[in-house]
């Protein structure tokens, strides 16, 4: 132990201990306010949490009974079994993927012109920029299920309403991401195009587009994956896809079918995730995720 090279350091530190305490008061004698800040924040958060539990109808009895019932449900779920509905479920799953794909693409296409208007370097007007961005936030603030309900009023029940709903809720997010990509684009290629005699449209086509297109495609692929998840639930309100079967089977307590549907969803989401990750890497290389 005496050979430990740390020992010398330790001795030196101990000899200097009193002076160190004076030199670094922030470490050895922190102010009371600083020391209390952490616990105070935690206490505040916990207090609010306790209040929410009471407000949301929490009782130990409810938890106890609920966990018991949940255990029964899980037991009834095993093993996952589609019964004779396998092909119906598969068809609904295809519909779900179709909704995600078309909805995302439609949203992206609509978002491109909106994003151009939202980019500071294309429309250099602060007031317009601010207003336009807030307008785009509006699309994002409304959940895809609400959009689905609205579109059902227009095109009727079915997957088409789901496609439009996904597109609407994506417009805001896409326009924001696209405009950020456009703002981050290098100006020099545009200047080059203009210097070589190109007009403003040429500048966008040959100066900006090659820079932002890979980023945009990568984001579209990313959204397709997350929208597959959203598309699995919009069936709950009647906008097509597997969600309808999911809520129906839960309502009639067909738990084996429920777990089969959940497994189908998990596998599909994982597959889409793997495919879109592959494609993203192929398009923009491993770095640019």
């Amino acid at each position: 132990m005496t050979d430990n090279p740390g020992a010398a350091l330790r001795h030196a530190a101990l000899a200097d201990a009193a002076a160190m305490v004076i030199r670094h008061p922030a470490v050895f004698r922190p102010k009371l306010a600083d020391r209390l800040l952490g616990p105070a924040v935690v206490a505040l958060l916990m207090g609010l949490f306790a209040y929410s539990l009471v407000a949301l109808g929490f009782t130990f009895e409810r938890i106890w009974n609920g966990v018991g019932r949940l255990g029964t449900i899980v037991v009834h779920m095993l093993p996952p079994d589609a019964g004779r509905f396998f092909w119906i479920y598969l068809d609904a799953l295809g519909e779900t993927v179709a909704i995600a794909l078309l909805g995302t693409l439609l949203g992206a296409v609509i978002a491109v012109p909106l994003a151009l208007l939202a980019a500071k370097n294309i429309v250099p007007n602060r007031l317009f920029h601010f207003g336009w961005r807030r307008g785009l936030d509006f699309f994002r603030a409304i959940d895809v299920l609400i959009w689905a309900l609205i579109w059902i009023n227009v095109v009727g029940l079915g997957p088409f309403a789901g496609i439009l709903a996904i597109a609407m809720s994506d417009i805001g997010g896409f326009a924001k991401l696209f405009s950020e990509a456009i703002e981050a684009a290098d100006r020099k290629p545009i200047e080059g195009v203009v210097a070589a005699g190109g007009g403003a449209p040429h500048g966008i086509r040959f100066g900006i587009l090659p820079q932002v297109l890979p980023i945009m495609i990568s984001q579209v692929l990313y959204y397709i994956e997350s929208n597959t998840r959203s598309a699995t639930i919009i069936g709950i309100v009647g906008a097509g896809g597997i969600g309808l079967h999911l809520s129906d089977t839960i309502r009639v307590n067909e738990w084996q079918n429920v777990s089969f549907l959940i497994v189908m969803i998990l596998v599909t989401v994982a597959l889409i995730d793997a495919i879109s990750t592959r494609l993203r890497f192929a398009i923009i290389g491993r770095r640019g995720t």
């Binding site: 949301l56 019932r69 949940l70 449900i73 998840r229 639930i233 809520s247 429920v258 969803i265 998990l266």
Partner: peptide, 19 residues
């Protein structure tokens, strides 16, 4: 991976309606 609405559907059956 399971959307929260699906959990909500199942938990509503187990714990009863409500927040």
């Amino acid at each position: 991976s399971v959307p929260e609405l699906v959990y909500a559907l199942i938990f509503v059956v187990a714990f009863g309606l409500g927040p």
